[in-house]
């Protein structure tokens, strides 16, 4: 099964860089063979192709209102879609992407999509935990209790 971890955010904005710190941490590790690690950055709707190749996709992104500051949460596909307004904008993020995917997918739709969310400013320990959870989910272990 194809597996990918896609980290989203802007490393030049303090409130939005946690997922890219996860990316940096993972990039410095020896990853399991075949696992794709992507810096999704600000690509928004242009991330669609990553969801049209089947397999399991783990997004890592900043979240707001899901948990206490400096915590990691795991959000499933339905909850991601529910967090959206259904409107497209320059700020369109994962909810819009997930909501529109079934209608526009031209390849093989990702079978499993999970979001590893980072709430607020995150410590190095939280970044490391998010990286470990992302890897565990990507490798099929499901969210660890971490």
């Amino acid at each position: 099964m194809r597996r990918a971890i896609v980290c989203i955010g802007n490393r030049l904005v303090a409130e939005d860089r946690a997922a890219l710190e996860v990316y940096d941490l993972l990039r410095g590790q020896a990853l399991p063979e075949g696992l794709e690690l992507v810096e999704g950055g600000l690509a928004g709707l242009d991330l669609l192709p990553l969801l049209e190749r089947g397999g399991r996709v783990v997004f890592v992104d900043q979240v707001r209102g899901f948990a206490a500051e400096d915590e990691v949460v795991v959000v499933d596909r339905e909850e991601i879609v529910a967090a959206g307004s259904g409107h497209y904008g320059h700020e369109a993020g994962l909810p819009y992407l997930m909501a529109v995917l079934p209608a526009v997918c031209e390849g093989e739709m990702a079978e499993e999509v999970t979001l590893v969310g980072l709430e607020g400013r995150c410590s190095a320990q939280t970044i490391a935990r998010a990286a470990a959870i992302s890897l565990a989910i990507a490798e099929g272990g499901g969210p660890c209790s971490g």
Binding site: V63, G65, A83, G84, G89, Y96, L115
Partner: peptide
């Protein structure tokens, strides 16, 4: 207008994300 496009995050309760 395009003042956003930098910060984005999933916000519980809808209303879309809030890139800055």
């Amino acid at each position: 207008p395009c003042l956003v496009c930098a910060v984005h995050c999933l916000t519980r309760g809808g209303g879309g994300s809030g890139r800055r």
